[in-house]
Design a protein around this nucleic acid. Structure first.
Lengths: 150, 150
DNA sequence: ACGTTTAGGTTCCTTCAGGGAACCCCGATT
DNA sequence: AATCGGGGTTCCCTGAAGGAACCTAAACGT
């Protein structure tokens, strides 16, 4: 991502950024999630430099959010989300909800999501894993945890 | 964030990244959320270059997620989250949940969140704004929206 | 058998952004 | 009048992004 290494910070935000916070990484994950799994597809869809795309894909594979696997007898590879990677898409879904609300403008959101469970076009909300009620920034107290810095 | 401009892409992820996807921006927002609102505090807590901190703060103010306001008769300023900015913290909360689960290791999460509504230490889940049931990456169909590219 | 095509990268060069230290400005304090 | 402290700005240096050219291995066409 940047020259300062975030991976050693005692902060889950910083550590998550170490995985997917570099420029392009979220967009690469988005494309792979919607089925664009090959190098050439990603490169031409995003308009990213091939060099940077190589670096990002390797990094995401190293961090265990993507898996690189052959799809032919020829040396051809596709990149697929691991379970860890699929859960990371949650972050993107919240970005979508925020961007749709605050940045879409007159034209409206570029993409809609239909929820399988209810069949409705909707968006994600944050809720509490314990009680299920809404859980946003102002609904919590922040406390030191077991892995807090010394 | 990077030299390629994401703000004009027909994608709410890209547009959200244009606002807070640059290196350090999420950590700046985190610090401001937990009450570290002044330049010197931010600089020394993060260890960020003063130059970059200035650029990030200006950018976040320009995009309407922070407000710069005087807190003294002397020329002293603090940065506070706007409503738009506070909603952006949702993205960070999901990063925390993911990082806590996948990257915290033996030590456990560095920070805990206690939910006001139920009093329990918990974490955020994604749910559907319409039916309230869980809503993750594999629970949706992706459809073109009104603001889709031509 | 030989040249072409295609996916998936490497290499190289240039430009721009991040790191880090030094410096500056302004109002208040002593 | 000199000092201090918050909030920046300027400078130089290094490293990462952009972009084009090049490379390789396995098929395919003829």
């Amino acid at each position: 991502m940047q020259r300062t290494d975030f991976s050693e910070m005692a902060c889950s935000i910083a550590r998550t950024l170490d995985v997917m916070g570099e420029p392009w990484s979220p967009l690469i994950l988005r494309d792979i999630f919607v089925g664009m799994s090959r190098f050439e597809q990603l490169q031409s869809d995003l308009g990213i430099s091939r060099k940077v795309l190589t670096e990002r894909l390797n990094h995401l594979v190293d961090r265990g959010v993507l898996e690189r696997r052959p799809y032919d007898k020829r040396p051809r590879y596709e990149y697929v989300l691991t379970g860890k990677g699929l859960e990371l898409i949650d972050v993107l879904m919240v970005m979508v909800a925020w961007g749709d609300k605050w940045l879409a403008g007159e034209a409206g959101p570029p993409v809609l999501y239909r929820h399988h469970a209810c069949g409705e076009v909707s968006h994600v909300e944050l809720s509490c894993s314990h009680c299920g009620k809404p859980m946003h920034a102002n609904d919590v107290d922040v406390l030191p945890g077991p892995g807090a810095a010394a």
